[in-house]
């Protein structure tokens, strides 16, 4: 869906998206990384279960909610990628280990 127009080879981090390892440019948001990795949707809504992708990219729409490092419902456009980060799609309501 999206591609980068720059050569980031020198400055990348390794993250795991939906269980698959990816190298993505450092200093980009998780939402940007999810688009770069070609995810068809970053979450399924808790209301009807339909898929969504990031929409506003500036923190207001809450459509990019993802599970980041195990924490549910994180606004992926507001979190920067970091080495060894795990990123998963948010499927419905937030779920915690305790549940």
């Amino acid at each position: 869906m999206f591609k980068t127009i720059e050569d980031h080879a020198a400055d990348t981090v390794g993250i795991t998206v939906e269980g698959v390892p990816h190298r993505v440019p450092a200093n980009i948001s998780v939402a940007a990384a999810a688009l770069l990795c070609g995810l068809g949707s970053v979450r399924e809504t808790p209301v009807t279960g339909v898929g969504r992708l990031p929409y506003c990219m500036m923190g207001v729409c809450f459509d990019c909610l993802m599970k980041i490092n195990g924490q549910p419902n994180q606004r992926a456009c507001q979190v920067m990628v970091a080495a060894d980060m795990t990123v998963e799609r948010q499927l419905g309501a937030a779920e915690f280990e305790e549940f």
Binding site: M1, F2, K3, T4, I5, E6, H8, P25, N27, I28, S29, A32, L35, L36, G40, S41, V50, G51, R52, L53, P54, Y55, C56, M57, M58, D63, C77
Partner: peptide
């Protein structure tokens, strides 16, 4: 407008500014 693949133009520009990313396809 809620379908995956529909975004705001501002979002497109943010991706360009912050990540050097552009749409493909």
């Amino acid at each position: 407008w809620q379908l995956p693949g529909v975004m705001t133009a501002g979002a497109g520009q943010i991706l360009l500014k912050s990540a050097g990313m552009v749409p493909e396809g």
